[in-house]
Design a protein around this nucleic acid. Sequence first.
DNA 1: AAGTGGTCTAGACCACGCG
DNA 2: GCGTGGTCTAGACCACTTT
Lengths: 240, 240
Amino acid sequence: MKSDDKHIPKYQIVGDYLKKKIQKGVYEPGDYLPSENALCKEFKITRTTARKALDELLNDGFIKKERGRGSLVIEKNKALGLLTVKGFSEVSGKKSQTIVLEDTNENELPQDYLMGLFDDDKDARWVTFKRLRVLDGTPIMVDKTFYSLSHLPLISANKFVDNSFFKTLSKNHLIEIKGAEQELRAIHANEAIAKKLDIEEGSPILHISIKFTTSKPNFFVYSEVYSSTKKYPISNSYFL
Amino acid sequence: MKSDDKHIPKYQIVGDYLKKKIQKGVYEPGDYLPSENALCKEFKITRTTARKALDELLNDGFIKKERGRGSLVIEKNKALGLLTVKGFSEVSGKKSQTIVLEDTNENELPQDYLMGLFDDDKDARWVTFKRLRVLDGTPIMVDKTFYSLSHLPLISANKFVDNSFFKTLSKNHLIEIKGAEQELRAIHANEAIAKKLDIEEGSPILHISIKFTTSKPNFFVYSEVYSSTKKYPISNSYFL
DNA sequence: AAGTGGTCTAGACCACGCG
DNA sequence: GCGTGGTCTAGACCACTTT
């Protein structure tokens, strides 16, 4: 019989160990990790192995190597894509706020839904909620989010963990966001949107249609976002 | 092989050598590269070095390693994100076209450059070129691209491989696009842009500022894109 | 059994940053 | 001068694929 020994390579053990320490805050951005030679002694490994462990962290964007100095912990890349307004929750001195415009309720699918992505679940029952994001007093975006009741019960938007739907999915339902497809259009703000975003009717705004893929098979979350980009542009990073 | 080592590490010489062979078609997708041991003998290097050379190709998406079999050359597909208009080159029956509006020439950096990403290379000499993308007769986007002469010579936009700057970087200079940071804004088209995109002045368009990260350290490519999204929205996928 | 890639050891010399 | 990371050698054993 084959044994089920999962032989985990040393470099991965050491790499994961360092990642966890960074995630726990033992090492913060700006700190230097133990040197390669220090890791060799601590874990009784050779430099090749220690370097491979650090390469993992380098690849995942945890550290930056500086010859002659050491391995510097850096701010991690968040490839969270377009839903991240520049510094929405990270701009120092700015306060972000989420206002529920319309709490979760059963609803018809909009006829004019733009993305041809509803192939599945066409006859399912859907719920939606609508929210307004405000950054430092400035309305930034309105979003309307859809999901199917056949995969998740109705959850009040007022009961989201940290006002975040995705955090709620993760913490209470163990569902993780795995990816997304998006379509972007520049459009004129209509009266309703303009009023909510406190801009003039006809101002150029960004309309984003998003289909989120989750860790739960066949469970997708759909979002329609209307964003005023004048003060805070949408920022986005992606790495291949 | 000659040993013109000097500054360039061996693994890079071997890695570049293999990349060139792939790009020349000596090795095609589906082929296996010489085994690590074969490379050791051919270049008189150790397996560590041979493996590091192959790691380069692995990172740049040229090959896939198969234990017990070898290093398989694969098709390079770049999910280039936002620069991909929906089906720009894939819509069946549609013809894409790239028109050079302004050939590559040395230029001043624009004063109003939006992204605060020029920290490095501030005093370097820059070249720019400007192009118009047309899909099935409809102008889709204009883009102005910048790069620093300290990393790459001036290349005429009329001599790009397949009209693609990135393909040129890859095929002729072994530089791969690794990722990007972007900022998106919805704006009103000014007269110049409107004329080029054949839309009314004041129409909402998408303005995208992009900083591309490459496989060449400290070499970045900057692009300013203005896109009419009415007929063809920008589409984008990302996966975590 | 032979060949491939995956991991690892125990060294070595070099280029760089800092005191 | 010393410690750091960058490169490299010359081996070794392992897991996996193919013949």
